[in-house]
Amino acid sequence: MKKGLSIIILLLFLFPSMASAHTKLVSSYPSNGQIITEPIKQITLEFEEALEQLGTIKLYKAGTATAVTNVQVKENKLIADLPNDLENGDYKIEWKVVSEDGHPVTGQIPFKVQLKQVETKTTTESKTTDKAVKDQTPAKEKQKEATPKKERSKYLIPLIAIGLFGIALMVGGVVLWNRK
C-alpha cells in the first residue's frame, strides 16, 4: 500500500511538468506586429525544442492565401520560402508544428509590409498614408503585448486545477496513512 501511494504521489508531481511540455515559439521573422520595410524572401520560426517533420506555414493577406514554397523543418526551426516579393499590406502567418513529444502546437503572427515606394507625383498621398500608419502603430504594439498574456493564461487554469487535485490526493493519502 505504501509503495502504491508513493508512486501515485510521484506521478502527480510529474504530470504538471508533462502538461506544460509543449514546445513554444521563441522567435520569428517577421515577428509579431513587425512592420517590414525591405523585401523578404523567407519566413523563419524558431521553437524551444526540436520538431517533427509535420510543420506547416500558411500566409494570408486580407484573408486571401499567398503562396509559400519549400516549407521545411530543420531541428527547431520551421522555414518557408516566398516565391515573390510581398506587396504592401497586412499579413498573417498561420503555423502548425508537432513537437517531439507528439503534441501539435499552432499559432498566428500578424505583420505588415510597408515597402518604400519610388517617389512620384502623388507624394502628398504617401505622406498622408505614412502619417495614418504611424498613428495606428501604438495600437499594434498594444496588441503585441496582449497576445503573450492570452497564450499564458490558457494554460494557467488547467495547471492550477491539476495542482489542487494533487494537493487533495496528498492530503487524502496522509489521512489514510495515519489511520493505519
Rank of each mutant, 00 (worst) to 15 (best):
I40V: 02
S153E: 11
T69L: 06
W177A: 08
K131F: 14
P110I: 01
E94T: 14
K116Q: 02
T122V: 12
T23K: 01
I167T: 03
T69V: 10
L45S: 02
K2S: 10
K61G: 02
A80I: 07
K140P: 13
W177I: 06
V26P: 11
E48I: 08
G102V: 00
F13P: 08
E87W: 04
I157L: 03
L176I: 15
K74C: 15
E49G: 10
D130H: 08
Q42S: 08
G63R: 05
I9N: 10
I167W: 00
K74S: 15
S27H: 11
I160N: 01
N32D: 04
Q143Y: 04
N76Y: 03
L176D: 13
K150I: 06
E94F: 11
A21F: 06
S28W: 00
P83E: 01
I36W: 04
K154C: 04
I40N: 03
Q143R: 07
A62V: 11
L12G: 11
A19R: 13
E48P: 13
A161I: 03
Q143D: 03
I40S: 04
I167M: 01
L10G: 15
Y29H: 15
P158V: 00
Q117Y: 03
S28A: 00
L51A: 03
E119F: 12
D135Q: 15
G107I: 00
I57N: 05
L45M: 01
K2E: 11
L51D: 05
L25G: 05
N84S: 15
I7A: 05
P39N: 06
T37A: 07
I8F: 07
K150P: 09
K150R: 08
N88C: 05
Q53C: 11
G102K: 05
S20P: 14
V73K: 12
L176T: 15
T128D: 10
G163S: 07
S31H: 06
I93F: 04
M1G: 13
D101S: 12
I79Q: 01
R179T: 14
T147I: 13
F111P: 02
A146W: 07
A168N: 12
L159A: 06
K24L: 12
I43G: 09
P104Y: 00
K58T: 15
N178T: 14
K112Q: 12
S17V: 06
K116A: 04
I162G: 10
K150T: 09
I167P: 03
V97S: 06
P30G: 03
A139P: 13
T123L: 09
Q42W: 01
K96R: 11
A67M: 08
N76A: 01
K77E: 02
E75G: 14
